[in-house]
Amino acid sequence: MITNETLSDIREYSPQNFLITTLYLQIDGAPQQSHLIALKDLIKQRKGELDNQNLRPEIASSISDDFKRISDFINFEFSRQGTRTLAIFSCSAVKYWHILPLQLPLRNSLAVGNGPYLLPLNMVLEEYDRFLVILIERAKARLFEVFAGEIREHSSILDEVPRKVKVGGFGGAEERRIARHIEDLVRRHYKNVSDAAYELHKKYSFNYVILCGNDQNSKEFPHYLHNSLQEHVVTCAAEEFGASLKEIQERVLPAIREIKQKQEQKVLKRLFDQVNSGGLGIVGIDSTIRALQQGQVNSLVVREGYTKNGFRCENCRSLLTERGECDYCGGSTHPVMDLVDEAVQEALHQGCQVKWITSANMQLETAGKIGAILRFKI
Rank of each mutant, 00 (worst) to 15 (best):
L110Q: 13
L348Q: 08
F376E: 04
S155Q: 05
I157T: 02
F76Y: 07
A148C: 06
I357P: 11
K260Y: 02
G331K: 11
A38H: 06
K166D: 13
V124T: 04
I88P: 10
R290H: 08
K308S: 14
Q294C: 06
G82A: 09
E304Q: 13
N227C: 01
Q249I: 00
V283R: 14
E342A: 13
P335H: 03
Y13D: 01
G324C: 08
F241E: 03
H181F: 04
L132D: 04
E137S: 08
E240G: 03
R323K: 13
R107M: 13
N114F: 11
H226C: 00
E304L: 13
S14G: 05
D286N: 12
I10R: 08
N122K: 13
V302C: 13
A93L: 04
R84P: 00
H189G: 12
V94R: 09
E231K: 08
M337W: 02
Q45A: 15
E325M: 06
H223A: 13
G324A: 09
F18P: 01
C212F: 08
C316R: 14
A291E: 04
A372D: 03
T235E: 03
L374F: 00
P335W: 00
Q26F: 00
N207M: 00
K191H: 15
H232L: 04
A179R: 11
P57I: 13
L319A: 13
I88F: 02
L23P: 04
G113I: 14
L339E: 02
E174Q: 07
H232S: 10
S14K: 15
H201L: 00
P101R: 01
T288F: 11
K377D: 14
I256E: 01
L39F: 03
H35V: 00
V267R: 08
A111M: 12
P15K: 05
G172E: 00
H35A: 08
G279K: 14
A30V: 10
E175D: 02
C316D: 04
P57M: 10
R180M: 10
C329G: 08
D129M: 12
A38N: 07
A347F: 12
W97H: 09
H226R: 02
F78N: 15
L271K: 12
A173V: 08
L100A: 04
P162F: 03
Q345Y: 12
E247Q: 09
Y198E: 10
Y190L: 10
T83E: 12
Y96L: 13
A60I: 04
E322P: 06
L19K: 14
R11W: 07
K191D: 15
I99A: 14
R180E: 11
V124Q: 05
G172V: 00
N309V: 01
L319M: 08
I2Q: 10
K164G: 12
K308A: 13
L339A: 06
A30W: 06
I74F: 06
F89Y: 11
V252Q: 04
E77R: 15
F78D: 11
L225V: 02
V165A: 09
A196K: 07
I373L: 10
D66Y: 02
R130I: 00
N52F: 09
G149K: 09
E126N: 12
F89V: 01
R84G: 00
S79V: 12
K377W: 07
E150V: 01
I210H: 01
A38D: 03
K355F: 12
H349P: 00
Q350G: 07
N52A: 15
S79D: 12
L268R: 10
F78M: 09
G115R: 15
S277R: 06
K40T: 14
